[in-house]
Design a protein around this nucleic acid. Structure first.
Length: 194
DNA sequence: TTTTTTGTCTTTTTT
């Protein structure tokens, strides 16, 4: 029997289709059926205090039991294996549909602690299990390691639409409740990070 | 023009 060789380090996608974006990034209070996480990222290199665009792309969690991997870990392994140099300073920005689970948050926090040359900003559309203290603790540990954790606002959705969606020249169409949901999530996040 | 009990990166072994 031949050993099966599988790639445990998926490469990022270039962009996603509009219906995927609208479904997975909608910041609903009760987001039924969003049992996937999408993560859009930009990596910039800081040169003389100025961020210079480097790479960008989209990850989705791997559901295949063999390669099962949350989106954040997909990013980390890709980043560590492809881009990361200890001699450079990076600004990494994530736009995620769900905020990280405690395990991923812990790993990312640890990664940040070990890589002082990497700054991370996370914009999340929705907070994952935000009433659960373990999940809250996860977000705090990220924050304590210097990651900036924020809720996606209109401008962030629009930015994602323009940079990570095959938008065919169509403008971003806001959904009703976007701003109200944003405010409510911001309030929750503020309480968590206090 | 502020008020909450919850949406989930799906579940691993049996016919």
């Amino acid at each position: 029997m031949k050993p099966q060789i599988r790639d445990h380090r998926p490469n990022p996608m270039e962009a996603m289709y509009p219906h995927i974006f609208y479904f997975h990034f909608e910041n609903l209070e009760k987001a039924y059926g969003r049992n996937e996480t999408w993560l859009c990222f930009t990596v910039e290199i800081i040169k003389q205090y100025l961020p210079v665009p480097w790479k960008k792309g989209v990850f989705r969690n791997q559901v295949d039991p063999e390669t099962h991997c949350h989106a954040e870990k997909c990013f980390l392994s890709w980043f560590c294996n492809n881009t990361l140099s200890p001699k450079k300073n990076y600004q990494v920005t994530w736009y995620t549909s769900w905020s990280p689970c405690p395990e991923c948050a812990g790993e990312v926090a640890e990664f940040l602690a070990e890589h002082s040359n990497v700054k991370l900003t996370i914009y999340t559309a929705r907070l994952y299990y935000f009433w659960d203290t373990d999940y809250q603790e996860g977000l705090r540990s990220l924050s304590e390691e210097g990651a900036s954790v924020e809720i996606m606002d209109y401008e962030d959705f629009q930015y994602c639409w323009e940079n990570f969606v095959y938008d065919d020249g169509e403008p971003f169409k806001r959904w009703k409740g976007l701003k109200t949901n944003f405010r409510s999530l911001t309030r929750h996040l503020r309480e968590i990070l206090q």
